[in-house]
Design a protein around this nucleic acid. Structure first.
Lengths: 137, 137
DNA sequence: CTGTATCCCCTACGATACTG
DNA sequence: CAGTATCGTAGGGGATACAG
């Protein structure tokens, strides 16, 4: 009897939810959120702290985050060089919780994952060595 | 007096943690985890459910997840066609919690993000229209 | 100092065809 | 049905140069 074992969750490609598998944004988004946790920061401060990020990617990421309402540009207090600072919006702040959960997971389980990966790679290398005993590059 | 405002979190590029900004894996990893939540599934079942995923990408993702110890291949019960099923390992199961938190965030805040994005895009389009009144492509 | 503009590369993803 | 092999593409990310 082929019963429908259990209902799988449905993923509508048209639903914006599918754009959020688990990643929040680009490679640097989470780090930027973390950097802005304790107050607004200037472009250069972020750049230096996030090095080796390139200016292009930092600007792009910041723009994208602004577009999504996660971050806001505000004129820097008491500076006349036209500089601006970036600060987290209330919406951006809500990400801190999710990020913290992710980091918790990593702190707890990442070593296990790395161990599994190493074991897998060692096994792959080993079998390759066996297969390659009669053929040198 | 230039005090060190507040200590920013440090991101060591050499630390494997930096490989986990917030995304767990590829585009499909989280969905696969969700699909395996209630028991092992066969390749074809996943493929059909995750459509429009390609066989190549599904195989790749599953392999990568196996390498990371998130998923395990097991011979399918009572079948002689040499088929296998994929099941979540205990480590893979720990991802369910993180994913659930992410989905919670999305359910609560995604609409706000989309609204911000739309507003931003409308504003950009509007200013472009103004600039373009005297120049046609 | 704060970006924007190029150029390039590499990988993830996708379509398709083919094998066990 | 369960993959592997090939080919093609788009976009993210990086380096560098240049403009405000």
């Amino acid at each position: 009897m082929t019963q429908t074992v259990a209902p799988l969750p449905s993923f509508d490609p048209a639903c914006p939810m599918s754009a959020f598998p688990i990643q929040v944004g680009g490679k640097w988004t989470a780090m930027i959120v973390l950097c802005l946790e304790n107050g607004p920061r200037r472009f250069g401060v972020l750049r230096r702290h996030l090095r080796p990020i390139s200016t292009k990617v930092l600007a792009e990421t910041l723009t994208a985050m602004g577009r999504d309402g996660l971050v806001r540009r505000c004129p820097v207090e008491g500076a006349d060089d036209g500089g601006v600072e970036y600060e987290l919006t209330p919406l951006g702040r809500t990400l801190l919780d999710v990020i913290e959960h992710t980091r918790d997971w990593a702190r707890t389980h990442l070593s296990e994952l790395v161990r599994a990966r190493d074991a897998f790679d060692r096994a792959a290398t080993a079998s390759k060595a066996v297969l390659g005993t009669s053929r040198a590059p």
